[in-house]
Design a protein around this nucleic acid. Structure first.
Lengths: 185, 185
DNA sequence: TCATTCATGTAAGCCGTTACATGATTGT
DNA sequence: ACAATCATGTAACGGCTTACATGAATGA
């Protein structure tokens, strides 16, 4: 049973809670780099927004800030979760909200209205989309190799997430190939 | 060759251009209903935003507005594309922008940070996600039946788009099943 | 009698982005 | 000599959402 804090946050705020949870203590600057190298393919904020969010988390009592003066380099602020912050994160992870997501996707929208464009426009569009999916899949495969080699795979949520991306990418490529074939006929 | 109008619009603006292109003439109110019954699963705006966008399209010379007074019902405005509007749409459909999309998805983010929640939280999360994918797939299948029965399938872009959704939904369900099995072990 | 359809909007606000600013230190 | 790293922010704006408002006509 998770105790209710009743806090409602934006996606980015929860993401930062999550990152802080695994990092323990970190500066905004470092969080950006950590994010780029891990959740980056699911979620990546602008640094501006990250700093804003960190400030809000402190204001809401979900994190603490400790300023660290540095002689050589610019001063920095270190953040860490409070008990309340860890609770808010757990609450979010526990909360099942079945918001059926609208696939808000420019490419799909283009395809849908494809009939109003040049006859071959959608072929080029599909090829480009297919190519980017292939490239993405390759990147995922590389990350996968790394995980399988170095990590423990038991309940490895990062790996599960990655395999979601892989499954989707493969499905996308297969669909694009079939659709291109159909357009070529 | 598509002549350049040089216009850059938001996704919603292009979507409205697309809808107007197929409708010919329509009020904002009617566009909302048309959208809900067609592109709804890819893109659905709030009515507020729709009205704002329509106004902007007129200001930009991409559509025209004609006010129609009605005795019984509230007056309405009818919109239709200008040549420039049709051109801007074609231009957009022609333009291949390879913005590799970040899968900005709450569920994935939760899964990624799953280790910081209750041990069984992700099981419930996955089940709910799987269920919603199954429900979505069923809806798609119904739409598909309708299309196959009543429409011409030659270069049917709406159908292609739908099959994308179907392919993704199926991949999602398969992945969720596998992942749930892994968590149960 | 009460909800729904028709039809359009205003006001307020959230989330997020890009552009710009600062300024020492380290690497090429 | 020039770029990149470190480190944090301000300002301005864009896109979108929710809540609220209006008011006659029709159907359960």
């Amino acid at each position: 049973m998770v105790v209710q804090t009743g806090v409602r946050l934006s996606l980015t705020e929860y993401a930062v809670l999550g990152l802080l949870a695994r990092e323990g203590t970190s500066s905004g600057y470092d969080l950006m780099k950590v994010a780029a190298g891990s959740v980056g393919y699911i979620w990546s904020p602008s640094k501006t927004q990250l700093y804003v969010v960190l400030g809000r988390l402190v204001d809401a009592g979900l994190a603490t800030r400790r300023d660290v003066p540095q002689p050589d380099r610019p001063d920095k602020s270190l953040y860490r979760l409070t008990a309340k912050g860890r609770q808010a994160l757990a609450e979010w992870l526990d909360d099942v909200d079945v918001a059926d997501d609208v696939e808000r996707h420019p490419f799909l929208l283009k395809l849908f209205f494809g009939g109003h464009g040049a006859p071959d426009a959608m072929v080029r569009q599909l090829e480009a989309y297919r190519d980017s999916a292939v490239a993405r899949l390759e990147t995922y495969r590389e990350i996968e190799r790394d995980i399988v080699e170095h990590d423990d795979l038991e309940r490895h949520f990062g790996y599960m997430t990655l395999r979601f991306g892989i499954a989707r990418a493969e499905a996308t490529i297969a669909w694009a190939d079939a659709t291109l074939e159909e357009l070529a006929a």
